[in-house]
Nucleic acid binder design. Structure first.
Length: 410
RNA sequence: GCGGGUAUCGUCAAGUGGUUAAGACCUCGGAUUGUGGUUCCGAUAUGCGUGGGUUCGAGUCCCACUACCCGCCCCA
């Protein structure tokens, strides 16, 4: 029986790897320029971190986590991280970073795990790249984070994606809003879909982005719309949101306000945002994030405002222009593998990308290979070795020249 | 967790119950023993996702399972 990759996982190599490397490289460059530092946290954590951090009402915690006893006699379970904000916050608290002068700015890149039914743009092991920024309650931090996301996407030539923003308000606004939504939906309770009936009790805000046609229609009714679109958030939250909008205007970042944008993780407060692509089918969000001012405290740290986002790398990959495989600098054509190996060593030490034939095959075969993979062929046969020169052939033009030392090659 | 579709070489595929499972690309070898990208010749699935069944005979029909894809849900 052949062992195959687990359902919802995949190998990345060959044609795909160049583009993946570009995504990772650009993330490092763009985020470092904005003074975000990379942080690597473990892929597994105590289960409680996620149930407390991500939230008991979220689907992620309820049914999608890889949770297990690390040993058969272990007392506590561990969980493969389904997202990375909770882990970064844990590290932030554990290393007392709250005592450093704010802000603390991090980015990460790594695999996440969710036990879901695989589909286009959705896998069980998937990569996220994201940033987290701690210690700043002002909207300038929200703007900085959204700016970083947009600049990163720009670096990948993804310029025309939709940025949607909304403000959920502070916990108090959220409670008031939740109450008034419940109030106005009460008469319609029986008409909502089964899922939404559950949501009505556990997390009524999520009814707002239900895809069920009937539920959508109910939300269209006048008195409900009034509740949704009235500014329910308090003055302070409103000022915060207005400030963010102003910053985004100044930065020339196109955005639209989506009052229905709620997001499924419990820890968000005030600003939430998503960046979407039309080219992606039903899993159309490539970036999701927002402010989570209460999370650090909820996980046992000092009260610390924070804001961040995560992007799905596989989703980025699927809409990005693919990198062409590039040709190597030199392919050494030789019937003397020892000399070829020595020349390869020298050229590589000079920073060149070099390969050769390891089997002493006929020159015709070696040139065939060289033409496929390299810009230039270096001929290193008996004549060259005996008379101490190199023949170099430009495989594009077919011109062959002689040089006496490898320094002339470079 | 629910609904729909698909499964033949490394890749793309033909095949509609009857010998030995087309073809193309890739790979490898030869024509061409030190010069490639063109051309020509040749090689490569005891096998059709897995396991059963129907039949004289199954890639083709039936059943089950598995995987992948698509939608719902959820989310990045």
């Amino acid at each position: 029986m052949v062992i195959k990759a687990q359902r919802g996982t995949k190998d990345v190599f060959g044609d795909e790897i160049k583009t993946w490397q570009k995504i990772e490289k650009n993330a490092r460059e763009v985020f470092s320029k904005a003074c975000f530092e990379e942080i690597k946290t473990p892929v597994f954590e105590a289960t409680e971190l996620f149930s407390r951090g991500v939230g008991e009402s979220s689907d992620i915690v309820n049914k999608e986590m890889y949770t297990f006893y690390p040993k058969f006699d272990s007392k506590e379970t561990i969980t493969l991280r389904p997202e990375n904000t909770a882990g970064v916050v844990r590290a932030y608290i554990e290393h007392n970073m709250t005592r450093q002068s704010p802000p603390q700015k991090f980015f990460y890149f790594g695999p996440m795990f969710r036990y879901e039914r695989p589909q286009a743009g959705r896998q069980r092991q998937f990569y996220q790249v994201g940033i987290e920024m701690f210690g700043i309650k002002e909207a300038s931090a929200d703007a900085e984070v959204i700016l970083a996301a947009v600049e990163f996407l720009k670096s990948l030539n993804l310029n025309n994606l939709k940025v949607e923003i909304n403000s959920l308000g502070c916990p108090k606004c959220k409670d008031d809003y939740r109450a008034s939504i419940k109030e106005v939906l009460k008469p319609y309770l029986n008409e909502l879909c089964d899922e939404c009936k559950v949501r009505y009790i556990k997390n009524p805000l999520r009814i707002l982005d239900c895809k069920n046609e009937n539920c959508k229609k109910i939300l269209e009714s006048k008195e409900i719309k009034e509740v949704i679109y009235k500014d329910y958030i308090c003055n302070e939250c409103k000022e915060h949101f207005d400030a963010l909008k102003k910053y985004l205007d100044e930065l020339n970042i196109n955005y639209c306000i989506n009052k229905l944008l709620v997001r499924g993780l419990d820890y968000y407060s005030r600003t939430v945002f998503e960046i979407k692509s039309d080219a992606l089918g039903s899993q159309n969000a490539i970036c999701g994030g927002g402010r989570y001012d209460g999370l650090v405290e909820m996980l046992g740290g000092n009260p610390t405002p924070a804001v961040g986002f995560a992007m799905g790398v596989e989703r980025l990959y699927s809409i990005i222009k693919k990198e062409q495989p590039s040709k190597i600098d030199y392919f050494i054509v030789s019937n003397n593998t020892k000399e070829a190996l020595k020349l390869a060593q020298k050229l590589r030490q000079k920073g060149k990308i070099v390969d050769f034939d390891y089997q002493n095959r006929k020159f015709a075969k070696q040139f065939e290979k060289a033409a496929k993979v390299a810009k230039n062929a270096i001929v290193l046969g008996e004549d060259e070795i005996n008379q101490e020169y190199y023949s170099i052939k430009d495989l594009n033009s077919g011109l062959q020249t002689r040089v006496n030392s490898i320094d002339d090659l470079i």
